[in-house]
């Protein structure tokens, strides 16, 4: 099927002191760039909660852009190092959802680098045009995509995933302060938590859509039945689901 020409929607999070200022100075210099980005100003990229990024996609962004100060130049000492990990973490979530992680882009631009900001946004916009609407290049149906993103947002609002993620951010910071060589990467353990948490919330969403058996869910989620059993018991304990029928296999559904 031929790609219909579309205008990508980009949500930007820019820090007040560097990248937002760079964007302003691009204006002062009258540099031109495609009108696809809508910017949310934050004081520091360190403010950016991972849930904001995924929520951006859930709300229709084809690309999300994070712009901060160059490393070492953060107005708040080290907020951009934190942002670097937040973005790495969000990248893992996108991968887990089957979304091209490059749709979330992190760049540094100092207040003086208006021209660089323009270059980056122009390239990103063009890249998003080439790759197509969110979901098309990933070959995920819009409804499915929405459900998955919703599950990810729920996971990111839950304290379990947040705690694991935050602990890892702390570890990374301590490493950095000891001057150890730094690789901003998400650990296997955290990746597992991401997988599990998303699957958990996704199963709750599937159950909202209709009755499922454990093996139905396991198949949809592409997840071991034993794990799904655990989700089911957790959801039951919370009183969120109910057993619709016991035989021949137990079928569950969300409580209305």
């Amino acid at each position: 099927m031929a790609q219909t020409a579309y205008e990508p929607k980009i949500l930007g999070f820019l820090c007040n002191w560097c990248c937002y200022t760079a964007a302003d100075s691009a204006g002062v210099a009258r540099y031109q760039y495609p009108p696809n980005i809508r910017v949310i100003r934050v004081m520091c990229t360190g403010r950016i909660d991972p849930v904001f990024l995924i929520d951006g996609f859930l709300n229709g962004a084809d690309g999300v852009f994070v712009g901060g100060c160059h490393l070492g130049e953060c107005h708040y000492i080290s907020g951009n190092y934190e942002a670097q990990f937040v973005v790495a973490f969000a990248h893992e979530i996108l991968k887990e959802l089957g979304i091209n992680p490059e749709r979330l882009r992190l760049e540094w631009a100092s207040a003086a680098e208006g021209a660089y900001f323009v270059k980056v946004i122009t390239e990103f916009t063009q890249w998003l045009k080439d790759v197509g609407r969110l979901g098309t290049s990933e070959k995920i149906a819009p409804e499915e995509l929405k459900l998955k993103l919703k599950a990810a947002v729920m996971a990111l609002e839950g304290s379990k995933l947040r705690m694991n993620f935050a602990k890892e951010a702390v570890k990374l910071k301590e490493k950095r302060e000891r001057g150890e060589a730094l690789e901003v990467a998400v650990s296997e353990g955290l990746k597992n938590t991401i997988k599990k948490e998303i699957a958990f919330y996704l199963s709750s969403l599937y159950l909202k859509q209709g009755p499922h058996s454990v093996s139905d869910l396991a198949q949809k989620l592409n997840f071991p039945e034993a794990e799904v059993e655990k989700f089911i018991s957790a959801l039951s304990k919370k009183g969120l689901i109910t057993l619709q029928q016991q035989e021949p296999v137990p079928i569950y559904v969300a409580k209305s």
Partner: peptide, 12 residues
């Protein structure tokens, strides 16, 4: 007011 604390709070 950088917000690093808020972005990482497990309890929001």
């Amino acid at each position: 007011g950088c917000g690093v604390c808020s972005a990482h709070c497990p309890q929001q």
